[in-house]
Amino acid sequence: MEMEEKDQTFISEIKTNKRKSPKITVIGGGTGLPVLLRQLRKRKADVTAIVTVADDGGSSGVIRDYINIVPPGDIRNCMIALSPMESMKKEIFQYRFNSDDKFFAGHAIGNLIIAALTEMKGNNIFEAVRILSDMMQIDGHIYPAAEEPLLLKATFKDGTEVLGESHLAKYRKPIERVTVHSYDETKKPTPAKAVVDAILESDMVVIGPGSLYTSILPNLMIEDIGKAVCETKAEVLYICNIMTQLGETEHFTDADHVRVLHEHLGKNFIDTVIVNTESVPDEYLNQQKNEEYLYQVKYDFNGLREQGCHVISSEFIQLKDSGVYHDGAKVIDEVYTLLSSTNQRMQ
């Protein structure tokens, strides 16, 4: 009898710990992903970040071209978000050389460290990230979407095509579809087994926020990742961008974002959408550096519901550094509320 009571106590503790540490897999890239990861670390979630490897601009692009490794920039930012290291160490890792430092101009120290470790480990990016994660005391997992750099190809609605993530926005034409390709034309882009397992074993899969065509879809267009997202029993949550983006989502509503995702995977796979309904101040409209943002994404509740999505709408704006961002704490509050309601429905 005493042994049975101990077994029941142990089982109860497992269930309690599971409730305290839900398995959450976040898929994306760019500046939106670290915002969520920082908040999830504070909540002590069991986090896995799956990061795009199609970035070919800036320091990451230069390194991937010279050393033929996956672009390290998004991985670096995710590591900083999930690491409890003191701020000075993080600043060193994030430090970017000045433009007048000819040889190192524009490179972040963290990018160079990731590249060096990858080379040391026989071009094994997963092993490099694992070692660096241990060094940075990261409690969670950071996985590149594939073990090799990938090339993004966009096909516009007029039938023309462009290669390279960094070139896409320059054309200012409506996009029909994006795909990703290995530089070795005989190979198909393939994720590591750990990437697929993380998606299938999660309590929730979070997609976004991030550039629709250049941060989110490059992950989902890897066949095995897209298939896993469609097949997982986890709640699939999409966090829609607050602002449209030049050359990508001009004039888009939140429903348009979801429609593009569904069309690319051939299935309505998104269960819930988080959308912002707070107005962006006029002085933040069309005033961003490099014109990356244009206007606020329009709210289309009926369009979202027609695609079978549960909608969470509220005020999620955080204004800082002359930019418009998601308030990470508010978003994660909604994530945990959704997790709680999902668990109750499944019991």
Rank of each mutant, 00 (worst) to 15 (best):
N286R: 13
L152I: 10
V70T: 15
A154L: 05
T244C: 02
T337N: 15
V205G: 02
E235V: 14
E161K: 15
V70P: 02
F10C: 03
D327Q: 11
N343Y: 11
Q8W: 05
K102R: 12
E291P: 00
L37Y: 04
I80Y: 00
E334L: 08
E250V: 12
T52S: 13
A255Y: 00
T9V: 12
C240T: 07
F301V: 06
T272N: 09
F104D: 05
L246A: 01
L150T: 04
E4H: 13
E306H: 11
G226T: 07
Y284H: 11
G247I: 03
G303R: 02
P144V: 08
P281I: 09
H310T: 13
L151M: 15
L33I: 10
K20I: 03
S133M: 08
V280T: 09
V258D: 02
V311K: 03
H264K: 14
P22C: 12
V180P: 05
G32K: 04
V311Y: 01
D333F: 05
R259K: 15
L117P: 04
I125M: 11
K289N: 13
D254R: 00
L152Y: 10
L217F: 07
D134V: 00
I27G: 01
Q288C: 06
T253Y: 03
I142V: 06
V196Y: 04
Y143D: 07
K187Q: 14
E165A: 06
M3H: 12
E148H: 06
D74F: 04
E291V: 02
R177L: 07
E5S: 12
Y336L: 11
D300F: 03
F93T: 00
Q318V: 01
K193S: 09
I11G: 01
M221C: 15
P174M: 04
S340V: 06
V178Y: 03
V275N: 01
I109F: 14
Q296C: 03
E13K: 14
G159T: 10
D74K: 04
V129L: 14
H181L: 12
D158H: 11
A105I: 07
L319N: 04
P144R: 08
E165S: 11
G58P: 09
T249I: 05
K102A: 12
K187H: 03
Q288P: 00
L36W: 02
F93C: 00
E86A: 05
I312G: 04
T337R: 14
E278Y: 01
R130N: 09
R43L: 07
N302E: 15
E127Q: 11
A116D: 10
V51D: 07
E223C: 01
G140L: 07
D65H: 10
A45V: 12
A105P: 08
E127H: 08
E283F: 08
T118Y: 04
E91D: 14
A198T: 04
S21K: 13
Q318N: 07
A81N: 06
I80V: 15
V236R: 09
N123Y: 15
S211C: 13
M88F: 08
L246E: 11
K227L: 11
A45G: 08
E283D: 14
K188C: 06
L36H: 01
I270Y: 05
G266E: 13
E306K: 12
G208D: 09
T190P: 02
H167T: 08
E91M: 09
T342L: 02
A255E: 06
D101K: 13
I24S: 06
G58A: 07
E2A: 14
